[in-house]
Simulated scan of single mutants.
Amino acid sequence: MAEDDLNDSKAELSLHSSGDMLRHAREQKNLSIEDIAKTTRIPQRHLKSIEAGDFAALPGRTYAIGFAKSYARAVGISEVTIGTQLREEMDEQGHAAYQPETSGYSPANPTSIPPKMLAFTAAGIGALVLVGYLIWRTLVLEPSSLATDINETDVAGEVLDENQTGTPQVAAGPAPAQTGTVVLTATEKVWLKIYDEDGERLFEKEMAAGEKFTVPADAKGPQILTGRPDALTVTIDGQVVPALGTAERTIKDVGISAAALLARGEAGAGAGTIATQNGNDDSDTN
């Protein structure tokens, strides 16, 4: 009697195919076919074929087993069990040696096969394009030749009086507030990287138009790297400050704390003031 019960249990279990097991596990987790497709990057039509046991609709035995194992991992059941059972089911249905349909195709005319030289030429062109891209990326995103120009813009409040000895002078005026909330707003698609003075990355992505990033108030000497400073609007407590740069020049290691931005603005304003004073002195002398 006990042996009959055991046989009945095994018969009941055998009624559940690998597709049934996967579907049941998916439904237990309240997941849709679309959810599984997004997780595994397997087309929904293949997932549905696996659940239905329609192996002829799949691209091949190896792919079918691989897809089923990925499906199993996504719903949290044993991929080994699913793989073994799927092999048995495919064997029973006559798919023991099933391969993609295209695997049996061969050119009717040997002359239609592309020559090896064409393949080598294509590979060479691809390599040249890759090298060119890497060189362009290095020059645009890491322009070491621009380091001197960029560092010069970080000097705060110093103005060179060309009519005197060339000694830098600090423009007089009230000291600006050194704190405030700095917000970067993208006016169009732009890639940027924000990091602190120790090189620790704080933010890095390609921002869409209208997207904002608030510089952490506790960041230690925050700086920016971007190839499109003109695509960013910078504000401190809602007040727009001068642009970080132009479209033709990549900026790197430019300070974007409130203190650094205000210092840049004061430097520009001081230069204008002294230039005006020099113009007045020249006219009085004449």
Rank of each mutant, 00 (worst) to 15 (best):
M1I: 03
A2G: 10
N7R: 14
N7G: 10
D8S: 12
A11W: 11
E12N: 12
L15H: 10
L22R: 01
R23V: 07
R23I: 05
H24C: 10
Q28E: 14
Q28Y: 10
L31T: 00
S32W: 02
S32R: 05
S32Y: 00
D35Y: 03
D35P: 00
K38Q: 14
T39V: 14
T39R: 15
T39Y: 07
T40I: 02
I42A: 01
I42K: 02
Q44M: 12
H46F: 13
S49R: 05
A52S: 12
A52V: 03
L58A: 02
P59L: 03
R61W: 00
A64Q: 01
A64D: 01
I65S: 00
I65R: 01
A68P: 09
K69C: 09
S70F: 02
S70Q: 14
V75P: 01
G76D: 04
I82V: 15
L86E: 01
R87Q: 09
D91S: 02
D91L: 10
Q93Y: 08
Q93K: 15
G94Y: 01
A96M: 04
A97E: 10
Q99H: 01
P100A: 08
E101V: 05
G104S: 11
A108R: 12
P115H: 08
M117W: 11
A119D: 07
A119P: 00
A123I: 10
G124K: 06
A127W: 08
G132Q: 04
G132H: 02
Y133F: 14
Y133H: 10
R137F: 13
T138Y: 11
L139N: 08
L141R: 06
L141N: 11
S145I: 09
T148I: 13
D149K: 15
D149Q: 15
I150Y: 11
N151M: 08
A156E: 11
D161L: 05
E162I: 11
G166M: 04
Q169H: 09
Q169I: 12
A172E: 13
G173Y: 03
A175G: 04
A175M: 09
T181G: 09
T181H: 09
E188R: 15
K189H: 10
V190M: 02
W191Y: 13
L192I: 00
L192A: 00
K193A: 03
Y195D: 00
Y195M: 02
Y195F: 14
E197R: 13
D198I: 01
K205S: 12
K205D: 13
E206K: 09
M207E: 00
A209N: 07
G210T: 05
K212Q: 15
T214M: 07
K220F: 07
G221P: 03
G221S: 07
L225Y: 05
T226A: 04
G227A: 15
A231F: 09
A231K: 04
L232E: 01
T235A: 09
G238W: 02
V241I: 15
V241H: 10
L244R: 04
T246Q: 14
R249N: 13
I251F: 05
K252S: 15
K252W: 11
K252H: 13
D253E: 14
G255E: 07
S257N: 11
A258Y: 06
A260M: 06
A260R: 05
L261M: 06
L262N: 15
A263R: 04
R264S: 06
A269Q: 12
A271I: 04
A271S: 12
I274M: 14
I274F: 04
A275L: 10
A275E: 12
N278I: 07
G279K: 12
G279I: 11
S283E: 14
T285G: 08
